[in-house]
Computed example of a mutant assay.
Amino acid sequence: MLKSYEAIYENGEMKWLLDRPSLVHSARVVVTVLEETLLPTTKRRTFPTELAGTVQILGDIVSPIVAEEDWECLK
């Protein structure tokens, strides 16, 4: 099975953008070089450092803090 990974090649080094190949010791690769105008110009967003230690998670991240019966939704 073939998998695709995005990386930027700068100064002889690969910088992986999202996920990187895992458990691969040796592989044959195909490299496509994009023109600089096609490269993304925005950097990845990061969490603001000035908010570190001030954010509080209320409830479970996966399930809502409010009971489903209390939702005001149209059915």
Rank of each mutant, 00 (worst) to 15 (best):
M1S: 13
K3C: 09
S4C: 10
Y5W: 08
Y5Q: 09
E6P: 00
E6L: 11
I8W: 03
I8Q: 12
Y9R: 01
Y9S: 01
Y9D: 01
E10Y: 08
N11H: 02
W16Y: 07
W16K: 02
L18R: 11
L18A: 09
D19G: 09
D19Q: 06
R20F: 10
V24D: 02
H25E: 13
S26E: 12
A27E: 05
A27D: 05
A27H: 00
A27F: 07
V29M: 11
V29D: 05
T32W: 03
L34W: 07
E36D: 14
T37D: 12
L38A: 15
L38C: 09
T41N: 13
R44L: 11
T46N: 10
P48K: 03
T49D: 14
T49A: 15
T49H: 12
A52T: 13
G53M: 00
T54W: 05
V55I: 10
V55N: 01
V55A: 11
Q56C: 09
I57L: 15
G59D: 07
D60S: 15
I61R: 03
V62G: 01
I65N: 04
V66E: 12
V66M: 12
E68T: 09
E68I: 04
E69C: 01
W71Q: 10
K75A: 15
K75C: 07
